[in-house]
């Protein structure tokens, strides 16, 4: 269970998140939506400890995360797939995975992950930046899975990908849910959210505006427009 309580965070003196509370249960996909600049990425970075929270708390199970140094968060089982992939350029595919493994998994874990992404297995020696966009996103996801996360934070993982890639990524994420991982998924487009989400949360100017079940959203898609401004 990933629990975010009254989280406040920002840059310098400017507060961007004004007390956001959310929980994601194991085996659940919670989609976080909101306009550009609503603070979605800021929320994920604050959960990862990359941004010192100005207040509030983050828990993964019984473990409090926000008080730890940033580099000791991942090891607690938090896998992060950042916006824009942010692979380690200059490092090979295998080395990118290796960094993920250092934070948690072992050799067996690596094989498990590569079974999910056969295309990566064929390209282990290739430098990350020479992969196609879709393969890069797969690698970003695979890198996070290498540490055997209990919770997975994904920031717009399907941005700019072709449909077949989106399907492949979605399948892996759904499969992680089936294994009991708590998934916090940031997405911009409602049709990317509906096929996978269990619940949907809307962020508006750093406030959590509404949390609803995916079923309710499906029945009333117009509701989302209020927060997304489409």
């Amino acid at each position: 269970m990933l629990r975010i309580e009254g989280l406040r965070a920002g840059y310098g003196a400017a507060e961007v998140l004004h007390g956001v509370s959310l929980t994601v249960a194991p085996g659940e996909i919670l989609c976080l939506m909101g306009r550009n600049g609503a603070g979605k990425t800021t929320l994920l970075r604050a959960v990862m400890g990359l941004l010192r929270p100005m207040g509030g708390a983050v828990w993964l199970g019984e473990m409090r995360l926000d008080a730890r140094p940033a580099h000791r968060v991942a090891g607690q089982g938090l896998g992060y797939v950042p916006q824009g992939r942010r692979l380690f350029a200059g490092l090979s595919v295998a080395e990118n995975l290796q960094i993920g493994l250092m934070a948690g998994g072992g050799k067996a874990r690596r094989d498990e992950v590569l079974d999910l992404f056969p295309r990566l297995r064929d390209r282990l020696g290739q430098r990350a930046e020479t992969l196609s966009g879709g393969e890069q996103q797969m690698l970003a996801l695979a890198r996070a899975l290498c540490l055997g996360p209990g919770a997975l934070l994904l920031d717009e993982p399907t941005e700019g990908l072709q449909p077949s890639m989106i399907t492949a990524i979605r399948q892996v994420v759904a499969d992680q849910r089936a294994r009991g991982v708590a998934v916090l998924l940031v997405e911009q487009r409602i049709d990317a959210v509906l096929p996978v989400a269990d619940r949907v949360a809307f962020l508006e100017n750093g406030h959590l505006a509404e949390v609803m079940s995916a079923g309710a959203l499906r029945a009333d898609r117009g509701r989302a427009n209020r927060y997304l401004g489409v």
């Binding site: 990359l50 940033a70 968060v73 380690f88």
Partner: peptide, 12 residues
């Protein structure tokens, strides 16, 4: 390559 991502993956 990426200091912040290294941190996010447990690198001190």
């Amino acid at each position: 390559a990426d200091r912040e991502m290294a941190t996010a993956f447990g690198v001190p």
